[in-house]
Simulated scan of single mutants.
Amino acid sequence: MMIERKSEEDKISALPDDVLCLILSFLTLKEAIATSLLSTRWRFVWTMLPSLHIGCAKPIMKHYKSVNVFLALRRTEKITSFQLKCNSDHDCCSNYVEEWISKVVARKVEQVHISLCRRSQDFNTRGPRINSKVIPHSRPYQKFLNWAPLFHCTTIATLKLERFYLRYYLKEFTIVRNSRYTRCIDRNHLYDIVMQCDYDFISNYMKIRGWRNIKKTKVYITMYHDMKETVSEILQRVCSVEFLSLKYCRDDINPFPLDLPLFKNLVELRLFLKKDDSLIKELPAKCPNLQVLEVTNLDDRERCRYNFIGGARVHDLSIVPI
């Protein structure tokens, strides 16, 4: 019986390095390093992993003092996937993120997932408030624009950034790149913004005035709360796009008109609104080159589609059946 068990162990140890690395890639870095205690065969396998999945960076930084010292232990320069998911309530990894980012970007990382928990809810002191809680601006990750290497690294196919407050979801920012399109998702409990284009627009998107240079981008906006300032700011930023979809269920429709910009490039507009929302007429009237308008009534799910020549005017929508 002992001979058979030893034989089975030998079979596992005889697996090639790439297979062992594949097995360890499903583990966190801490668990992968722990396998070095199994036998001499496993001692250095973790150093060949092309992925780094870290639960908390603080123990590594405390022991090795710097990212360079830790990475020097690895037998491969390549890092295909980097994950940092720290659930600590003390926001302990924020001080190390920039150093990790610079090192993994230098190694042509392809997938990045960073998830951090903040001790304070002061995510953005300039944002509006709901029930005395600070609400983030529509500007994605305004506090972390110094993470610029992530946004400008074209080798990254998937980038996902998350913020939590004591397990309470605050914000998610995701970038997906492939041969067909680039997609950016900015999500929190107030709204979802999905932007998609057939070219890489991320560098322009992250600039202060870069949104005005993303004309060919399709923008899908879903508002979950009636926040006049927030939706007005978002619409101001996307006023140069050619395609816009807006889903907005306002609590008080008529007393709070929105400050609408001029959408001079918009050719297709999709609206998901309540039956009596004045935006059904007001927003198309701000689109002088509009060609297609699709309106969906959120009350009874009726949908109407219109084609225009030379843009829509207010009186063109007076016969809207909804």
Rank of each mutant, 00 (worst) to 15 (best):
216 K>R: 14
243 F>T: 01
107 R>K: 10
274 K>G: 06
144 F>T: 03
84 L>N: 04
137 H>R: 11
144 F>A: 05
146 N>I: 12
130 I>D: 11
57 A>S: 11
289 N>T: 13
177 R>D: 02
173 F>G: 00
63 H>A: 05
135 I>G: 00
45 V>I: 15
102 S>L: 15
207 K>P: 13
46 W>N: 05
87 N>A: 12
7 S>H: 14
80 T>K: 07
6 K>Q: 12
227 M>S: 09
179 S>E: 13
160 K>H: 02
59 P>F: 05
101 I>G: 00
78 K>N: 15
322 I>Q: 08
313 R>S: 07
92 C>V: 13
80 T>Q: 11
31 E>K: 12
181 Y>N: 09
148 A>G: 07
100 W>H: 06
176 V>G: 01
247 K>G: 01
52 L>H: 02
294 E>A: 07
290 L>E: 07
227 M>L: 15
15 L>M: 15
241 V>P: 08
154 T>I: 08
286 K>E: 10
308 F>S: 10
251 D>P: 12
138 S>F: 10
60 I>T: 04
43 R>S: 08
6 K>T: 08
275 K>W: 13
169 Y>N: 04
62 K>D: 07
252 D>W: 04
46 W>E: 04
54 I>S: 00
313 R>P: 10
46 W>P: 08
245 S>L: 13
90 H>T: 06
211 W>E: 04
45 V>A: 09
179 S>L: 14
246 L>V: 11
209 R>V: 02
100 W>F: 14
57 A>I: 05
80 T>N: 11
99 E>I: 10
261 P>T: 01
10 D>W: 10
228 K>F: 14
191 Y>Q: 03
93 C>D: 09
134 V>Q: 04
1 M>W: 14
2 M>V: 07
263 F>K: 00
266 L>A: 02
25 S>F: 07
142 Q>A: 06
201 F>K: 01
245 S>A: 10
65 K>Y: 06
76 T>R: 12
33 I>L: 14
196 Q>G: 10
67 V>A: 03
304 C>A: 05
318 S>W: 12
317 L>F: 09
165 Y>T: 01
304 C>Q: 04
311 G>N: 03
282 E>H: 02
162 E>W: 03
32 A>C: 10
133 K>M: 12
57 A>H: 02
104 V>G: 02
